[in-house]
Design a binder for these strands. Sequence first.
DNA 1: TCATTCAGCGAACAAGTGTTAGCTTATTCG
DNA 2: CGAATAAGCTAACACTTGTTCGCTGAATGA
Lengths: 207, 207
Amino acid sequence: MAGIRAQQKQKTRQAIIHAALNQLSAEQSFANLSLREVAREAGIAPTSFYRHFKDMEELGLTLVDECGLTLRQLMRSARRRFDEGISVIEVSVEVFMEFVEQNPNIFRLLLRERSGTSRAFREAIAREEEHLTAELEEYLIQSTGLPGNVARIQAEALVTLTFNNGAEYLDASADRRQTLIENTIMQLRFVAHGANAYVLAQQSNGR
Amino acid sequence: MAGIRAQQKQKTRQAIIHAALNQLSAEQSFANLSLREVAREAGIAPTSFYRHFKDMEELGLTLVDECGLTLRQLMRSARRRFDEGISVIEVSVEVFMEFVEQNPNIFRLLLRERSGTSRAFREAIAREEEHLTAELEEYLIQSTGLPGNVARIQAEALVTLTFNNGAEYLDASADRRQTLIENTIMQLRFVAHGANAYVLAQQSNGR
DNA sequence: TCATTCAGCGAACAAGTGTTAGCTTATTCG
DNA sequence: CGAATAAGCTAACACTTGTTCGCTGAATGA
């Protein structure tokens, strides 16, 4: 009843996942990762890989799902943390960059395969981005009372800007990183302010 | 003096460039393009490739340079066209999306290799983005009188948003594309408005 | 206990890759 | 004209890749 077999299986499955993540870097993308190299680093024979994943693509999608989940949880907790009086924008950006800093390879995976050659990948990552955007949109509606369509467009802009600044953050030096955070915050504030002003103008324009 | 030799050389060089661009698609990125396939499509022997480029990377950088140049010229002409009374933002977005629509493979190249595995690529594309941003920044300073640092940050946000919406535009259906243009314009307006408001607030806060 | 399951392995395959060496042959130039 | 140049070619190399097949041996469960 210990499940010693299933237990071992999970272990090497994790070994494969770890090996894959470990080989990701600035110079190596998931797309040009080879099944054989992953297997080698995981300490198994190439053929054993198939006992766990049908494909490299299936492995990749697994990674995307896991990462997307943790990222979403993180952002949600960031918005909760905000009650302590700091600006939501500030907290969110800092948390996001912290994620990037602590999971550079995972973030690189998302960043690259977002526009990669595998449709399945692109769709999976678009889905994750959509989750983030939708949650942010809802938050905006509830906390500022913006109309839905404006909230949506604003949320998309916020996610886009944060994500892209995260990409630059990846390769930045320590002090460049600090100003990058500040600039990102400023950009998000621009968007937020502009969206509010837009709604006010609409209302005073008789409609 | 006709230079019949050099002339022929330019011709096959162009054939190589064309072959490479032709093989780019949603499913095939430059990174996993093979020298042999490019040579085959260009109608030359694999080894002849080396008479023109040291590397696939060198070929890629050539493409990036050419594309960046045309894109920049396009955006500049868009800002010139603006004198006719339409909003700059509107014209710029429309011109950019037109570029994306007419050069999907080129844009894909920029999009992907921007976060690709080749440092030379990343730097080359960052350089192109920097050109675009710098020109826009200068334009903002001259036309709105914003202080330099704010103009810079605003320009970065505008370029980022436009570029990313272009990525989505690539795979969008015809009518989705229209709303995408509208949304992009709205996002850019948010940023512009927010930046202006920020400066005004700074000034009225006694400084 | 004994048959079954199944994670993992080694060998082998057909393909495709980048790159070198050396030849051909039309252009170039003194 | 005649030597030099250089674009393009064929053949061959040493690899790496994904994937199939059939085997082993330990965990499983009736």
